[in-house]
C-alpha cells in the first residue's frame, strides 16, 4: 500500500468543496430565520430565551449558578462564565444562527439555537 497517490489530491479537494458548499448553503438558508435559544440540562429543557427582544442581561439556570449565560442586544447568546476546566463552552462564543449550539459537558448544559416556531409548525400560519 502506498502512502500517497496523486489521485488523493482530487479526493481531498472534493472533500473540501463539499465542506465549503454545505457550510455556505447552510448559513445562507439559516441566516434569515427567526430564532430562539433553548438551554438543556442533560436532555431536559430548562429555559427558552427569545433572542429578538434587544435586551442585554446575564442569567443562570437554577441549580447551576456557577454557569452564567449572556444575551446580547444583537440577538446573540453566549456562555459568559463557567467553572469547568476546559472552557470549551465559553470559547464557543456568541451564537445566533439556527443550528448553532454550544455545550458545557462537565456541567451537562447544552445551549441550542432553534427556529422560533419549531421545525414542524405550519410556516403559513399568519395572524390576519
Amino acid at each position: 500500500m502506498k502512502f500517497f497517490k496523486k489521485t488523493d489530491l482530487i479526493v481531498i479537494i472534493i472533500l473540501l468543496i463539499i465542506s465549503a458548499t454545505v457550510y455556505l448553503t447552510y448559513n445562507y438558508l439559516a441566516q434569515g430565520e427567526e430564532a430562539k435559544a433553548e438551554i438543556y440540562l442533560g436532555s431536559k429543557l430548562m429555559k427558552t430565551v427569545n433572542l429578538s427582544t434587544g435586551e442585554n442581561y446575564s442569567f443562570s439556570i437554577p441549580g447551576k449558578e456557577n454557569v452564567v449565560f449572556h444575551l446580547y442586544e444583537d440577538g446573540s447568546i453566549a456562555f459568559e462564565k463557567s467553572d469547568c476546566p476546559d472552557q470549551i463552552c465559553v470559547n464557543s462564543g456568541k451564537l445566533h444562527i439556527v443550528g448553532q449550539s454550544a455545550a458545557c459537558l462537565p456541567n451537562a448544559l447544552i445551549l441550542k439555537i432553534v427556529p422560533r416556531n419549531g421545525y414542524n409548525n405550519n410556516q403559513n400560519d399568519v395572524v390576519v
Partner: peptide
C-alpha cells in the same frame, strides 16, 4: 443529549 443539527457541524 438532545438532537443537535448534525448538518451544521458537518463542514
Amino acid at each position: 443529549y438532545t438532537n443537535l443539527y448534525l448538518l451544521y457541524f458537518f463542514p
